[in-house]
Each structure stands twice: as C-alpha cells, then as structure tokens.
C-alpha cells in the first residue's frame, strides 16, 4: 500500500491498514513522516484513558471490564497494551490480549506493543500509534502501561484521564507517602478489594492524595474479575472527563503534551545528526582524559553540526 492509499484506508477504519501502519511506525518505515502528516489533521477527536500500576495488580482484567461496558454503549474502541521487551534479546512475550480475548471482536481494535527498550513503562511510538487509532475513528482509546515502578510517570503526558491501579498488601502508609505515581493519577483504583485490608488501603491512600489541579482524586474499590466497582469507576471517569471539559483543563493538558513532544523531537533531531560524527571517539577521549567536560563536548558537537542539522530539516 502506498502512502495515500494507506491513509484513506485508515480513515475508513480498515483494521488491516491500521495494523500495517502501526507496524510501519514501530519499524520507522521510510515514508512514515509524510503519512503521519496526512493523518494529523484527522486526529484529536478520541478521548484517551491510561491504566497504570505495578505488575499483577489486574490492569488487563480491569480494562476487560471497561471494554465490556463501553462496547455495550456502542462506542468505537482502541486499546494499546504495552509489555516489556527483553533488554538482552529484544524479544518479548505479549500477554495482555489473552485477558481481553473474550470481550473483543472486529469492532474493538487492540494492539500489543513492546517497549523496544524505551523507559517509563511506555514505548517510543506510542504518540503516533494513538494518532492512528484516533484518526481511524476510535472514540475512546485505552492504554495499558507495562507493570511500572514508583517513578514511571511518563504515561501522564499521553492521556486525558489516568487510572492508577493498586491492590491491598502493597505496603504501608510510608510507601504511599513517597513521591511519584500517586501524584499524577486522576483516579486511584484499589483492585482485588475482596482481599482483607482494602479499607485500610483506601484510608491510607486518601490521606496521601493531593488534589490534582483542583480535581479531587477519587479512590475506588474494584474486583475486576467479577465486575464489582466497574460501574462506579466508569462514573468517575465520566466525571473527570466533564471536569476537564468544563474547566478547559483538556486544552491545557493537550497543549502541554504537544510542547513536551516538540522538545523531545528537537532532542532527537539534534542527536540523529550528531551521532554519526567521525570525530566522536576523539571527543569522547578528550572528555575521558579530563580535557573537557561532557557539557562542553555536547556544545562543541552542536556547533560543529549546526549546518547539517539545519539542512536535514524539511521546509515546512
């Protein structure tokens, strides 16, 4: 499929074309920038929900509950499930889809992605893959991160509503006082709430929550495996969405996101043009022998390659 053909098919919601385009993004196919440029005006309509939390707390099973609900409302859904790739071989087992398989059909587009070495519980191509699903007409997109640690907060920059999933027995109050994920969550879900000390967990979390830009972060108990608490969770997601829409918070979030992405792109473009420098090893040697600092070396390289960087940028 050529660029225009694939864009038209994606816009018409063709599953095969969506899947192929996502692969092209992941593999950085040669014409991908042009294709994404054509797709871009058709994005911005989908609402994006992130689901994050440690390994084994029940993220996939919870998403299964969300899919069933939104599907019954007739919403067009896209789901991206991220799993870790091996730091040794680059290989991966993608095992999230397995928990969703009975609630999905052709109308729900699910894609499993690996981190491909990217940090923060997400994957490098995530923004563009969200755009593909968005442009293809999905009204709601759910993203599942890998099982994350306390500081993997990057997902907050990709989504409109972020659910943090925890479970009882994950540690005492002091653990919850530590900085990180709890500060960026819009809704906290205590899954597996049928375990004995879930009420203690609710209290401990409530004590340690800050209001998130004026939004009072709710704490919801669920048992995802049997659907307990899912309706309440759905209500809170709707409330948060309405809150963002009525306070113009969504525009701020999305503009912040664009700013973040542009800065990342600048870094990538500069890096790409410098990484192949034939004198790189010599400069490394100078730094190694304490002649110059890494900071100075970076400036030296940017100055040296300023024309290369400039010339490799397309005219917009």
């Amino acid at each position: 499929m050529n660029g225009i053909e694939i864009v038209n098919k994606v816009l018409s919601g063709d599953n095969r074309a969506i899947a192929k385009l996502i692969s092209n993004i992941e593999n950085q196919a040669p014409n991908i920038d042009e294709v994404l440029m054509k797709l871009y005006p058709h994005t911005g309509n989908a609402y994006v929900i992130g689901v994050t939390g440690a390994t084994g707390v029940g993220k996939s099973t919870l998403i299964n509950g969300l899919i069933n609900h939104y599907k019954s409302q007739g919403l067009r859904l896209g789901v991206i499930c991220i799993d870790p790739s091996s730091p040794i071989t680059g290989g991966a087992i993608l095992g999230d889809r397995l928990r969703l398989v009975n609630s999905i059909d052709e109308r729900v587009f699910i894609r499993s992605m690996t981190t491909r070495g990217y940090k923060g519980g997400i994957t490098k191509s995530l923004r563009d893959v969200i755009r593909v699903l968005d442009a293809s007409g999905k009204e709601l997109i759910i993203i599942e991160t890998i099982g994350v640690s306390q500081v993997d907060v990057e997902i907050a920059n990709y989504v409109d509503t972020l659910l943090l999933v925890v479970m009882p027995y994950m540690g005492d109050e002091i653990q919850l006082m530590k900085a990180g994920l709890l500060e960026v969550a819009d809704i906290v879900v205590i899954n597996k709430a049928d375990l004995t000390n879930s009420e203690d967990m609710v209290l401990a979390i409530k004590e340690n929550l800050n209001s998130n830009n004026g939004w009072e972060v709710p704490v919801i108990k669920t048992v995802a495996i049997n659907g307990f608490g899912i309706p309440e969770l759905i209500n809170k997601i709707n409330e948060h969405k309405n809150y963002l829409l009525t306070t113009n918070g969504i525009e701020k979030k999305r503009k912040d996101r664009i700013k973040e992405e542009i800065l990342e792109e600048i870094f990538n473009i500069v890096k790409q043009n410098i990484v192949g420098d034939e004198k790189f090893d010599e400069i490394v040697k100078k730094v190694f022998e304490k002649e110059i600092t890494p900071h100075f070396a970076a400036q030296l390289l940017i100055k040296k390659h300023k024309f290369l960087i400039f010339n490799n940028c397309v005219d917009v």
């Binding site: 790739s85 091996s86 071989t89 290989g91 087992i93 993608l94 398989v101 499993s112 690996t114």
Partner: peptide
Amino acid sequence: VARALRDAGMEVIYLG
C-alpha cells in the same frame, strides 16, 4: 515455543 521465540528476539503475542 513462545519462550523460545522470545529468546530468539521475536515479539510473541501469546493468546492462550
């Protein structure tokens, strides 16, 4: 088999 393919650097979607 899924594990072996993973260890060979492939991305394996295990569907159960």
